[in-house]
Amino acid sequence: MTDTDPLATTFCPAEISGVGLGLRSQHYQDILRTRPSIPWFEVLSENYMSTGGPALHHLEQVRQHYPITLHGVGMSLGSTDELDFDYLDKLKNLIQRFEPAWVSDHLAWISTGQHYLHDLLPVPYTSAALEHIAQKIMRAQEYLGRRLLIENPSSYLCFREDEMSEWEFIAALAERADCHLLLDVNNLYVSATNQGADASEWLRLIPSGRVREIHLAGYEDKVDYLFDTHGHPVHPPVWELYAETIRAIGPRPTLIEWDTDIPSFERLMQEARTAEQTLARLAA
């Protein structure tokens, strides 16, 4: 039982543009009290899959004033396990209730033999894996009745059996599954560095027509490799790669992700303004 009757609630239109922020429970009060001029919020789907409680109650209020996107980690699209239809039903309910602009998940597996590891694990870039994952994406899209955005991973390894590079794989997968892409520029930079590949070269492989959203976040430099923590400001080389991306594919709705050591809302707004300035500068 919420204070607001869902049937009486009116949401603002769903379309997104500009630079959004990840919605985090620490900031509900700030957002609802001050109504900051943020064009949209991204919501972590799994945090709202219960049938009641404070999280849904707050999201209901936020959604009245802001468009949202739903971003999940639970589909396990890269796993050889069958799709989890209970999970997809919950996601479908969320979609129906909150009318997101986009729904996204990752190129990764998080489970095997129904054992969930809750971490985005790497797939080999082989044609067999590509066909398997494309089939799962297509089945999920069919079940949900909409196209998904698939996000490129932060990888810490490449398999010896890989038949193609990360972005050759993603480009071919998107084509085969006819899905959209969520381009995480930080992930692309982290993966390229960790795999000894050239980020600018990967950028040229991106099927720009399929990219509907961009993510930016901060990594941690562990000397031997880059670690995708989402706990830092966006680093200078990622800002540069972001500018290069916008020049190459044009402006896209962009999200600042910050999930660990979450700073004040004001600090997040600052980060969003930097991205806005880049978008404005390159559009001029």
């Binding site: 971490d119 810490y156 390894l157 398999f159 010896r160 490799y225």
Partner: peptide, 22 residues
């Protein structure tokens, strides 16, 4: 053994990064 060593890390060291994140 299934992972290509890159930079200063062996295949197993690459896999250990995931162990840490999981």
């Amino acid at each position: 053994n299934l992972v290509r060593p890159v930079g200063g890390l062996s295949g197993e060291e690459h896999v250990r990064i995931y162990r840490q994140t999981v």
